[in-house]
Nucleic acid binder design. Structure first.
Lengths: 131, 131
DNA sequence: TCTCATGGTTACGAATTGGTACCTACTGGC
DNA sequence: GCCAGTAGGTACCAATTCGTAACCATGAGA
């Protein structure tokens, strides 16, 4: 951890780097917002990703910027205006995140169906027991 | 945080749940190994995911099992034999993880190319400076 | 003059995380 | 008898993480 994380590089897993970034607590919300609402300023983003602290947002944005997923445009006006937007690389994730979201949504739907199924079964079991 | 994390559910992001799982420190290695080497026993997996502690492996496996991504087959022989294998749901991630790995590999290659490019440039700059 | 907003940074502190060491119960090999 | 290996569970401890609060400079509006 002291230098550039030599720990796990021996294990061959190319998607690890990329997951290690998406992993961050708020990362997906930030990318999602930038994707759906377009380029945004710091405060705008902070308001939209409800609950995030300025510190975390800054840190996440810096990380994502460092990874080349988004661009930071600083205008030294008074008050300063900082706009964040997805880079080409950031948009390359759209497809992957999209299919990830699709799988997630499918599972959610399946789980909901299974739950209501079980609920119906326990209901009918109650009815049978009540007879 | 007190109950079942009501904090972030208001933000619509269906892929968050799924990322929250892949997120775990060793998760991708485990899935990767199960995918490429097929069903494996605990010790086998532990040996292959070099560096993981038994505690973490157990915890990750339980989480993944709970999420329905893998199956735990326990045979109460002496010594006990526990085999882990990907479920149908686990295999549904193959595609997504595959394209994620692809993007990751592409970026890695691009970065490497950019690095050698820069190295060559600084080399030629040194040569020019040495003249 | 006081306050708000902009886009952060810094210090502190509590909570979570993950590793290490030790424990289970059982058998086979030396 | 002792150790190894099977598949973990548990307690403890250090490190990391993340939120909160305070602070910066600046101008606009009340």
């Amino acid at each position: 951890m002291t230098d550039t994380e030599p720990r796990k590089e021996s294990v061959s897993c190319p998607m690890d780097f990329i997951l290690r970034m998406l992993m961050g607590p708020w990362t997906t919300y930030i990318l999602y917002n930038l994707k759906t609402h377009g380029p945004q300023r710091f405060g705008e983003l902070k308001r939209r990703v409800a609950g995030i602290s300025a510190k975390m947002l800054t840190e996440r944005l810096r990380t994502l910027e460092g990874a080349g997923l988004l661009r930071r445009d600083y205008e030294a006006t008074i008050p300063p205006k900082v706009t964040y937007s997805l880079t080409k690389r950031g948009h390359e994730l759209d497809g992957v995140l999209g299919s990830l979201a699709e799988v997630g949504a499918r599972w959610e739907a399946e789980d909901a169906a299974a739950r209501s199924q079980r609920a119906a079964e326990s209901k009918s079991a109650e009815l049978r027991a009540a007879e």
